[in-house]
Deep mutational scan, measured.
Amino acid sequence: MQIFVKTATGKTITLEVEPSDTIENVKAKIQDKEGIPPDQQRLAFAGKQLEDGRTLSDYNIQKESTLHLALR
């Protein structure tokens, strides 16, 4: 499925993911596309910060959802 990640600079990244993917996997995909190390990424959805060990389906993130990326 496709999801979107909006960066602090307003850029939107499109990612191909599975509901079973962990947040860690998603951060690795962002690193592949943007070169941002996962340990510098903070992802949020619906106002909640997402934890590495959880999956997209844990957070009820569905196709075409938009996550927000902040850098630490």
Results as ranks from 00 to 15, higher is better:
1 M>G: 03
2 Q>Y: 12
4 F>E: 04
4 F>T: 07
4 F>I: 10
4 F>H: 12
4 F>M: 06
5 V>S: 01
5 V>N: 00
5 V>Y: 02
7 T>L: 14
8 A>S: 14
8 A>T: 15
8 A>Y: 08
8 A>G: 11
9 T>M: 09
10 G>A: 08
10 G>R: 05
11 K>W: 09
11 K>V: 09
12 T>D: 05
12 T>A: 05
13 I>L: 11
13 I>S: 02
14 T>C: 04
14 T>S: 13
14 T>L: 07
15 L>N: 00
15 L>E: 01
17 V>H: 03
18 E>T: 14
18 E>F: 14
19 P>T: 11
20 S>D: 15
20 S>W: 11
20 S>N: 14
20 S>G: 10
21 D>S: 14
21 D>C: 04
21 D>Q: 06
21 D>G: 04
23 I>T: 07
23 I>L: 05
24 E>L: 15
24 E>H: 13
24 E>M: 14
25 N>T: 12
25 N>R: 11
25 N>A: 12
25 N>L: 11
25 N>W: 11
27 K>N: 01
27 K>P: 00
27 K>H: 02
27 K>A: 02
28 A>F: 14
28 A>Q: 10
29 K>Y: 10
29 K>A: 08
30 I>V: 05
30 I>A: 01
30 I>R: 00
31 Q>M: 10
32 D>L: 12
32 D>C: 04
32 D>P: 02
33 K>M: 12
33 K>L: 12
34 E>W: 10
35 G>P: 03
35 G>N: 06
36 I>P: 04
36 I>N: 03
37 P>S: 14
37 P>F: 07
38 P>C: 04
39 D>N: 15
39 D>E: 14
40 Q>L: 14
40 Q>P: 02
41 Q>L: 04
42 R>A: 14
42 R>N: 13
42 R>C: 06
42 R>Y: 11
42 R>P: 02
42 R>I: 15
43 L>S: 00
43 L>H: 01
44 A>N: 13
44 A>S: 14
44 A>Q: 14
44 A>M: 09
44 A>R: 12
45 F>C: 03
45 F>G: 02
46 A>V: 06
46 A>K: 14
46 A>I: 08
46 A>T: 06
47 G>F: 04
47 G>N: 07
48 K>I: 12
50 L>C: 03
50 L>W: 01
51 E>L: 07
51 E>Y: 07
52 D>K: 04
53 G>Q: 13
53 G>K: 14
53 G>P: 09
54 R>L: 12
54 R>E: 05
55 T>M: 11
55 T>V: 06
56 L>M: 05
56 L>T: 02
56 L>R: 00
57 S>K: 12
57 S>Y: 09
57 S>G: 11
58 D>E: 11
58 D>Y: 13
58 D>L: 03
58 D>C: 03
59 Y>N: 03
59 Y>G: 01
60 N>Q: 10
61 I>M: 03
61 I>T: 02
62 Q>T: 13
62 Q>A: 08
62 Q>W: 15
63 K>Q: 15
64 E>Y: 11
64 E>T: 07
64 E>G: 13
66 T>S: 05
67 L>I: 11
67 L>A: 01
67 L>H: 01
67 L>S: 01
68 H>A: 08
68 H>F: 09
69 L>F: 03
70 A>M: 15
70 A>N: 12
71 L>Q: 10
71 L>K: 08
71 L>T: 10
71 L>E: 13
72 R>P: 15
